[in-house]
């Protein structure tokens, strides 16, 4: 079975089923029309219509801060490796964020494999939710081909008039459907409705910037010395918001934190950012990217050039978080447009 239907009136029952056996996290409302992924107890806690959360679901796969190992000097060099595992269901993930998780999976599966990440990943069930319309004007998902589902989930829900069309992508997802026993078999009528929704989306979601996906890396290659970067450098405050909220930024720092007995302690991993002053600083006081323009350019090249070269995929998901949270109004889509215009 690859598809199923869930009556809208049973969605609350499905969430209750999930909550009965798992910790469930889903988008919940904050002030000012903002959202975050947080633990929920029922459907009533969840915002099904939401713009991208402040932090992407990345925080469950690679937390802002996590313990990698514990040490105790009385045991010499023996260190106890730690993985903070948490079994959870991620409910209501949009296609942009599914793409973000896929990007992280690629990076952390590359050698040397990141066992902490991969172990956590095994404990997380992902239930996607389709957007039938744009969330807001910051989104660039069509340019990045992420407005439609392309895997990365266990189950994926698309809202139709009377029910949710459910794609089942993994055995784990199929087992859930069977155990919940509130799903029905997919019908021809529902399939037709899904197809019509998808064709409507094709009209609605068109590349937000006039450039083809495959041409983006070349644009960045050809505009390395563009004035656009100087303008960004002048505006940027180096607050790090763009990278903190990015679903595919994965840089981190590692710190040793002793307990008050000084003999034992933890080695922790904390998110770091190429926008931070000390990120590219080295012993002796040199800094490889002292200028803000270099750091902003680096961020863009990481999304649109370097990782494409390495992994054959763009590392921007089009979620729009960086633009939404930029203090200085640096806008990803406008930046790409400006580069296109300057190159001619």
């Amino acid at each position: 079975m690859n598809q199923a239907l869930l009556s809208k009136s049973r969605l609350a029952d499905f969430v209750s089923y999930l909550v009965s056996g798992h910790k469930v996290v889903a988008p919940v409302p904050l002030q000012e029309g903002r959202f975050k992924f947080d633990e929920v107890q029922s459907l009533a806690d969840i915002s099904l219509n939401y713009i991208p959360t402040i932090l992407p679901p990345k925080k469950y796969f690679m937390p802002q801060r996590s313990t990698l190992l514990r040490y105790d000097l009385s045991k010499g060099q023996d260190m106890e490796e730690m993985v903070e595992l948490e079994k959870l269901v991620l409910f209501g993930v949009h296609t942009c964020d599914l793409a973000g998780i896929q990007c992280l999976n690629i990076v952390f599966s590359d050698r040397p494999k990141d066992l902490h990440y991969l172990a956590r990943n095994n404990f997380i069930t992902v239930i996607g939710l389709e957007c039938s319309d744009y969330c807001d004007s910051f989104a660039g998902c069509a340019m990045l081909h992420n407005h439609l589902p392309k895997g990365g989930y266990d189950l994926f829900l698309t809202e139709l008039a009377e029910c949710y069309y459910v794609h089942i992508n993994t055995q784990k997802g199929e087992e859930m459907i069977e155990e919940a026993s509130i799903f029905e078999a997919a019908t021809k009528a529902a399939e037709g409705e899904l197809e019509r929704l998808r064709s409507r989306k094709k009209e609605l979601f068109t590349s937000e910037v006039p450039i083809r996906y495959q041409d983006i890396p070349r644009l960045f290659e050809e505009t390395f010395d563009s004035d656009v970067w100087s303008q960004l450098g002048e505006k940027c405050l180096s607050c790090g918001n763009c990278t903190s909220v990015c679903p595919t930024c994965f840089c981190f720092d590692i710190l040793d934190e002793p307990e008050l007995d000084l003999g034992s302690g933890e080695r922790v991993r904390v998110w770091d950012s190429c926008q931070n002053e000390a990120f590219a600083a080295v012993a002796g006081g040199d800094n490889f990217r002292k200028k803000r323009l270099e750091r902003q350019r680096h961020r863009f090249h990481r999304k649109f050039k370097y990782l494409m070269d390495r992994y054959g995929r763009l590392f921007c998901t089009g979620c729009g978080r960086c633009s939404r949270s930029c203090m200085a109004g640096i806008n990803l889509k406008r930046t790409i447009s400006a580069l296109i215009e300057e190159r001619g």
Binding site: R34, I54, L55, C239, N241, S244, N276
Partner: peptide
């Protein structure tokens, strides 16, 4: 030497500017 925003985002506060 990071801006306060870095930890503020880690804590997922709604931005004061918003």
């Amino acid at each position: 030497d990071n801006a306060v925003c870095v930890e503020c985002k880690f804590n997922e506060n709604v931005c004061m500017y918003d």
